[in-house]
């Protein structure tokens, strides 16, 4: 974990150091995506990966992440992140009830629906 944070910080730093070659970034992050990282992230994404899947995915993801890290070499100082690809702002709708009252449609595809509710394994809070 500590190593990962360090490598991501180095990615961030190179954003302000254009002259620095991309290699540094890639080298610094060599094998940053370990099996443990994939397991942690997969858990965040609620995907139960088997041991074999983890073995297979870790190097693949490490490779992909290493590849996308070349973005670190782009000087983006004073560049705003894209917020809308085509200049456009948010439209607002009026406060009118136009929807709902369609419980059958809402529940029609549920794997388990009882008494008008969706049913899930008991949650202990």
């Amino acid at each position: 974990m500590v190593a990962e944070v360090a490598s991501s910080a180095s990615v961030a730093r190179t954003r302000f150091a254009v002259a620095q070659p991309a290699r540094t970034v890639l080298a610094a992050s060599a094998m940053s995506v370990t099996k443990e990282t994939v397991a942690r992230v997969a858990n965040l994404a609620r995907i139960a990966l088997t041991e074999e899947e983890l073995e297979r995915l870790a190097p693949e993801l490490d490779n992909i992440i290493g590849w996308v890290e070349q973005l670190g070499e782009v000087d983006t100082a004073n560049v705003e992140p894209t917020t809308a690809v085509i200049p456009n702002t948010l439209r607002l709708r009026e406060d009118v009830v136009t929807d709902g009252d369609c419980r059958d449609d809402v529940l029609a595809n549920a794997p388990q629906a009882e008494h008008g509710f969706f049913a899930v394994p008991k949650v202990i809070e």
């Binding site: 991501s8 990615v11 961030a12 973005l71 670190g72 782009v74 983006t76 992140p81 894209t82």
Partner: peptide
């Protein structure tokens, strides 16, 4: 480092 940077590159 990843998402914000990617959206900035997208701007470029």
């Amino acid at each position: 480092a990843y998402y914000t940077q990617a959206q900035k590159v997208r701007t470029l």
